[in-house]
Design a protein around this nucleic acid. Sequence first.
DNA 1: ACCTGAACACCGTTCAAGT
DNA 2: ACCTGAACACCGTTCAAGT
Lengths: 225, 225
Amino acid sequence: MNTPDPRSPRRTDALSRERIVEATIEILDTAGENGLTLRAVTAHLSTGRGAIYHHVINKDELLAAAAEGVIGPVLARTAGDTEPRAAIRTLALGIFDAIDRHPWVGTQLSREPLQPAVRQIWTAVGAQLHRLGISGTALSDAGSALVSYVLGAAAQYAAGARRSPDAATRQRYLEHLAEQWARLDPDPLVQTSAAALAEHDDREQFLAGVDIFIAGVTSGDSGGD
Amino acid sequence: MNTPDPRSPRRTDALSRERIVEATIEILDTAGENGLTLRAVTAHLSTGRGAIYHHVINKDELLAAAAEGVIGPVLARTAGDTEPRAAIRTLALGIFDAIDRHPWVGTQLSREPLQPAVRQIWTAVGAQLHRLGISGTALSDAGSALVSYVLGAAAQYAAGARRSPDAATRQRYLEHLAEQWARLDPDPLVQTSAAALAEHDDREQFLAGVDIFIAGVTSGDSGGD
DNA sequence: ACCTGAACACCGTTCAAGT
DNA sequence: ACCTGAACACCGTTCAAGT
């Protein structure tokens, strides 16, 4: 849209990788992962079934491109922050919120660690950790841990929300878990902990995890040579 | 096998939920997630296609039961440890190794947070954190963070290993990532960090992440009242 | 070059019919 | 009660034929 292109695209109407990815995101958002079929995509674009194979290798690439379409803008938006710790929080919350709005992104990111979107997250996290003064093995360890946590947690929260849209089954699950904890120990503190479990807010709990991480990374060298 | 059962199973030959789950695990291990079809399961058991629907609701329940069949014994084996920190490490490594041997378990656990296997992990982790003297909101925050990290990381390592069985594409990915990092900053320390990334051992890096977590949980109260 | 849509080789799940 | 296997309603992907 900004630079002139040698292959001037005459028809705004024509099929393109970009339009296909757009349609894919729309379908995933409205119909969910199970609703994404190539038939749905081609119907949405009112074209033939085989048409998209001229622009995309297969369904897997389509999913990876859709995830990149969601995550890319989030990373770009949070890039200009100031203090490293705050930047990491902003970054993590940005990804969390994006996955919360597009639950399928969570599944996709943790299933394919080699896809472009995950590499972008790695790069962004690595940059902030470096600004915290971490380097060498400690940097790759901390980066790996943080990326794993962010993707794993966000995917699970999103899956949990997706699976039990009524808060009822979710509540039942947490209560069952609390019961099992309470049974492990007569200590009244355990009862309190179990109760806390059932009353938490996902987003706050996610951020608390990020803070545990930052504390662990900052508090003394973790033994690296 | 140990206690007499009211419903005495005369025929060892007969179909049962247990035998179906066994066959499912075997197929997942040898043919992968994509290789698990109900046709493969029924062929393996030399029975009709509809037979398993008398013992299991659908394919999703089959996958959850298979995951529980792998994770359950791991948790039972590591239950009797002594020092809480060591117990958490043993627990985490046990899950990591199990997912490394059965990559499909990683995908399954992070996709379905409400399944029995995940609840068992939660319970085990919660017990050890409690023994560390953590309670209340701090316990549910720390538990959530640790479970998310363990499942997310293990799933991603397993997916990475599954996707690039030849170390070549994996190496290429890490080198690309290292390049991007190196470009972010002229600092020679960044170069070292990038190099460290390409030479790591998955299992060691995973354990380093667990240690970061334990450090973050232990170092001062994370602000919880 | 790009698109069409019928055809292919599969799926998970159901259900009348058997034992 | 449990099992069978044909049938149903889908899939992703391919490919000759069109423009």
